[in-house]
Amino acid sequence: QLNAMAHQIQEMFPQVPYHLVLQDLQLTRSVEITTDNILEGRIQVP
């Protein structure tokens, strides 16, 4: 299920590496919260 959620987020934010999306999802278990984390700059994109 997390993989499906990660792919959904990757479609919206292809610039964010998959492993970072998955790592955040493991903590949040939420597409909405992880999306917010990306938008708020809480996930550092190399």
Rank of each mutant, 00 (worst) to 15 (best):
Q1C: 13
Q1N: 14
L2H: 04
N3D: 12
N3C: 15
N3Q: 14
N3V: 15
N3P: 08
N3Y: 15
A4Y: 13
A4R: 12
A4V: 11
A4L: 12
A4P: 04
M5L: 12
A6N: 00
A6T: 04
A6R: 03
A6P: 01
A6H: 02
A6C: 06
A6I: 10
H7P: 02
H7L: 14
H7W: 14
H7D: 10
Q8I: 13
Q8L: 13
Q8C: 11
Q8N: 07
Q8W: 12
I9H: 00
I9D: 00
I9S: 01
Q10T: 12
Q10E: 05
Q10C: 14
Q10V: 14
Q10H: 15
Q10K: 13
Q10D: 02
E11Y: 12
E11G: 09
E11N: 11
M12H: 07
M12K: 12
F13E: 00
F13G: 00
F13A: 01
P14E: 03
P14M: 06
P14T: 05
P14Y: 03
P14R: 05
Q15D: 13
Q15L: 10
V16A: 05
V16I: 15
V16E: 00
P17R: 04
P17I: 04
P17V: 04
Y18L: 11
Y18F: 14
H19T: 09
H19E: 13
H19V: 08
L20E: 05
L20R: 05
V21N: 00
V21W: 03
V21C: 06
V21E: 02
V21H: 00
L22E: 05
L22Y: 11
L22M: 09
L22S: 02
Q23C: 09
D24G: 02
D24N: 06
D24F: 06
D24V: 05
D24M: 08
D24I: 08
L25V: 05
L25H: 01
L25M: 03
L25S: 00
L25N: 00
L25C: 05
L25D: 02
Q26N: 08
Q26W: 14
Q26K: 11
L27C: 11
L27D: 08
L27F: 11
L27T: 10
L27S: 10
R29T: 07
S30M: 03
S30I: 02
V31N: 06
V31R: 08
V31P: 07
V31Q: 07
E32F: 09
E32S: 11
E32T: 10
E32L: 11
I33S: 08
I33K: 14
T34Q: 01
T35Y: 07
D36Y: 14
N37S: 03
N37H: 08
N37Y: 01
N37L: 00
N37I: 02
N37T: 02
I38K: 01
I38E: 01
I38R: 00
E40P: 02
E40N: 15
E40H: 14
G41A: 05
G41V: 03
R42E: 02
I43A: 02
I43W: 06
I43M: 07
I43V: 09
I43Q: 00
I43R: 02
Q44V: 12
Q44H: 11
Q44D: 09
V45I: 13
V45A: 10
V45F: 12
V45S: 10
P46N: 11
P46W: 10
